[in-house]
């Protein structure tokens, strides 16, 4: 009898735990976002206006986001995947079709970001910020030409061993492909083999792989060059004036992060309110002033910091080639993953 009773107690205990999942109720919103990508000011404003309690967790790469979702992690309402990841999430059925194009503030979206390759007509997503992925160099350490990927792959002696790379399979491999003059989403084995060899050879020059810390590692001086996104780079320069953003002649990746609602979200209405809220030009401008990238909605100019109008990081010189890179085919993804694992071991 004792035995049965304690069995029962254990079962009850286990049962109680399974019920205690993430909190959802009227007035909640769980955001899953990149680190340091949404100012507290906006969260507070949204909470106050709509009486919604906001919680936020962070991830450090599109792949990490995908892995968490595929692992069956539920409970997040909105996320901020990059362009190609939106395409993958739609394909995998991981997004809720919330039709933000019917929201009131949808009218502010820059028309050139409506029929985007990853979400034609914006049935799932709205723009959050867009920018470029490049790298910065501390000009106090190295005074030579920085507008070439050579700085990363065959660095001068001053920079060798002082380079931080983003922990992002696509950004690193695309950079390698550009340096070698090969096309993106490449499944040509010969060319991928060259990329593999290039990365393996360059690894000895690299200090670390870190995305969240891409700014700090440059500011602290641990790294003298490092891959970084333009807005994050601008914030780095604010803390260390000798850092300079590079516009490599080989070209660079442009990206757009987008607000989406995850499949099975518990707070869809609040999520839509949040989407609408973030499309409001003033709020989009507040976000832009914080993150220092570029908004995808129009009418933000009156609210923007003056500095953003002239900053080198968000105002590329003429003739720089920037491209959005759509998701590759499954077989290419597998090859990329293999090259990536090979690089990190």
């Amino acid at each position: 009898m004792y035995f049965r009773r304690s069995l029962f107690a254990a079962a009850l205990f286990a049962g109680a735990l399974t019920l205690g999942g993430p909190a959802w109720a009227e007035g909640k919103l769980n955001i899953y976002n990149w680190f340091d990508y949404l100012p507290q000011e906006l969260i507070d404003k949204f909470s106050k206006e709509h009486g919604v309690e906001v919680t936020m967790d962070t991830y450090d790469s599109n792949e990490a986001l995908l892995a968490r979702l595929k692992a069956g992690v539920t409970g997040y309402d909105v996320g901020v995947p990059g362009d190609y990841m939106v395409a993958i999430l739609i394909k995998e059925g991981l997004l809720e079709k919330v039709q933000p194009n019917k929201l009131e503030n949808y009218k502010h979206i820059d028309p050139k970001f409506v029929d985007v390759y990853f979400d034609k007509g914006r049935e799932y997503s709205v723009p959050y910020q867009w920018g470029t992925t490049g790298f910065m160099v501390d000009t106090a350490t190295y005074g030579g030409d920085i507008d070439t990927l050579k700085v990363i792959f065959e660095p001068p002696a001053e920079l060798s061993g002082k380079i931080n790379m983003l922990k992002d399979v696509n950004d690193v491999i695309n950079m390698g492909l550009r340096y070698l003059g090969h096309s993106r989403c490449n499944n040509n084995p010969e060319q991928l083999k060259e990329v593999n060899a290039l990365l393996q050879g360059a690894k000895k020059h690299w200090l670390s792989f870190n995305s969240d810390g891409a700014k700090e590692v440059l500011v602290s001086g641990d790294a003298a060059a490092g891959m970084i996104w333009n807005g994050f780079g601008m914030r780095a320069r604010a803390e260390k004036g000798t850092l300079k953003y590079s516009y490599p002649k080989e070209g660079m990746t442009a990206w757009m992060d987008n607000l989406v609602v995850f499949k099975g979200a518990q707070n869809v209405e609040n999520a839509k309110k949040f989407m609408n809220f973030m499309m409001e030009p003033e709020n989009a401008a507040t976000l832009t002033n914080f993150a220092r990238y570029t908004a995808g909605v129009m009418g933000t100019e009156p609210f923007l910091d003056d500095e953003l109008k002239t900053a080198y990081e968000v105002n590329p010189p003429e003739g720089v080639s920037m491209e959005f890179v759509p998701p590759c085919e499954d077989d290419v993804i597998r090859l990329y993953d293999r090259i990536w694992t090979n690089l990190l071991k």
């Binding site: 286990a14 735990l17 399974t18 205690g20 539920t74």
Partner: peptide, 15 residues
């Protein structure tokens, strides 16, 4: 936890 459908959160950590 994912296989048997225990939602990840405070409860799963506690367990």
């Amino acid at each position: 936890f994912v296989l048997v459908g225990i939602p990840l959160g405070i409860g799963s950590i506690m367990l």
